[in-house]
Design a protein around this nucleic acid. Structure first.
Lengths: 252, 252
DNA sequence: AAACAGTGGTTCGAATATTGAACCGACTGC
DNA sequence: GCAGTCGGTTCAATATTCGAACCACTGTTT
């Protein structure tokens, strides 16, 4: 393994549960010689990627990481990181794909990849979606903190079409179903003739920060197509989350 | 320079202004051979510390950095990082030092290092300080976003002692003075017999996220002592900010 | 109090990973 | 077609890293 690979492995030994580790321990776990581990740690410390607690002499992640992460997060937000994954999903499904981020009590559409077909659903970036009535909203609600979900459901809910779910019991049941199977499905809840399948984008704390959705003309979707879309959208949503948070891809 | 040092130098070439850089450019700026730079980049990419945009083939900071920074920030917050610096400041000045973090419209005291002297000011962690009437509050206001500062000053302000500044014009003048010289001074604005000098803790965006303060019995402070305290508290505040954000220490 | 087991840290000849000039193919502007 | 980029690759020469053995120290056990 390359030297920088070894150094990176050292960084990866630190976790939420164990954010400070001693030299011998680090060397053992990274399967490195103590002398090697120390030399790498010193080099990392020179660039503030590692700090050493003066009292206990244990090592921990350095402030330089905060700085670098800030640069990354500021310049490669949600939409930008997600775009290539969405492009693939749009090609695979042949349908319009849109990504929404939770903001001020609703979902804000931050990126759209349109279907290549002539008969397609059109969504505009910037559009605000309600949490009820859309597949994206259901996916978000199902993976939010339960207190927040309950609070939202208790408010009076606007009706957009004759199919909009506004009844608290029905909606709660849909949320439960979505949480159980990992994706949501909704037809004409917000706009007539539109069918959507959505999955949540989970943040580092495993709660939804947004949702990814495949939107099709209702006439083109049967149960088989919906199942295929569901699988694809969940996979893509996981991929986006992984690219965003840096967590390794975990199967749900 | 060590190999990991070179790799770290590559990471440090990315900035807010230029978050994506091509191979040749990276090699030139880091004064590395192109082949070397690339080998390092590949090694970093394997650990997600670097990503390569597939289309342009340019490099950028990776998601792994976000993950590591999250681990660091969660486990070594404000108070913990600041504590050793505060300990030194308390020893240097011989007075009680307290650190406050802005939270919900006021300053929350998150850490205290008490003076070694018998006659000292006592402050408790957890105590809430108003933005007016305390040196910490003035320091915070003077380095907040000006809109937020104005909004605060427009509200009715509670009186705590006969010395509390509640007049908008007087307070605005104090804020202006604090912003100009980099520290605030207040005597008996919140509690009788207490004198304080404070400096803001600046976040990555150069706005205050909290304040550091030296609190003394009023009887012990003359102008000379206050000047010395001011210098010490500003230096310590800069040091804490640097340790927190990973930005290099900048003179004000 | 002596022996032991665990730290963090250092040394230096041996082993090996790193280096970089020269190379390739692809693209852009002239 | 040429010149000047770019990203990426190769391989002999070499500088860097490796790691067993070594301190000095601390706390525990006998």
């Amino acid at each position: 393994m390359s030297t920088v690979g070894k150094a990176a492995s050292l960084l990866e030994l630190f976790t939420m549960a164990e954010p400070e580790i001693g030299l011998s321990d680090l060397a053992r776990r990274a399967r490195l010689d103590k002398a090697t581990a120390r030399r790498l740690l010193v080099a990392l410390a020179e660039h503030r990627l590692i700090e050493q607690e003066p009292a206990s002499r244990r090592y921990r992640l350095g402030a330089g990481l905060s700085r670098l992460a800030r640069i990354r997060d500021a310049n490669f937000p949600f939409a930008r990181v997600a775009a290539p994954v969405m492009r693939s999903l749009a090609e695979e499904t042949g349908e319009t794909v849109h990504l929404s981020e939770f903001s001020a009590g609703a979902l804000l559409t931050v990126h759209v990849e349109l279907s290549a077909k002539a008969n397609r659903v059109n969504v505009n970036a910037g559009q605000i979606l309600p949490l009820h009535g859309t597949a994206s909203g259901l996916a978000f609600l199902a993976f939010s903190r339960s207190a927040a979900t309950e609070a939202y459901l208790d408010k009076p809910l606007e009706r957009f079409t004759t199919h909009t779910l506004t009844d608290r019991a029905n909606l709660a049941e849909q949320v439960r179903l979505t949480a159980a199977r990992g994706y949501s499905r909704s037809a004409q809840g917000y706009e007539d003739g539109v069918h959507s399948i959505a999955a949540p984008i989970l943040g580092a704390d495993n709660h939804a920060i947004g949702a990814l959705s495949v939107a099709s003309p209702l006439s083109r979707v049967d149960d088989a197509a919906a199942t295929a879309q569901a699988l694809a959208v969940m996979t893509a949503a996981c991929e986006i989350a992984a690219r965003l948070t840096g967590e390794p891809l975990l199967p749900r």
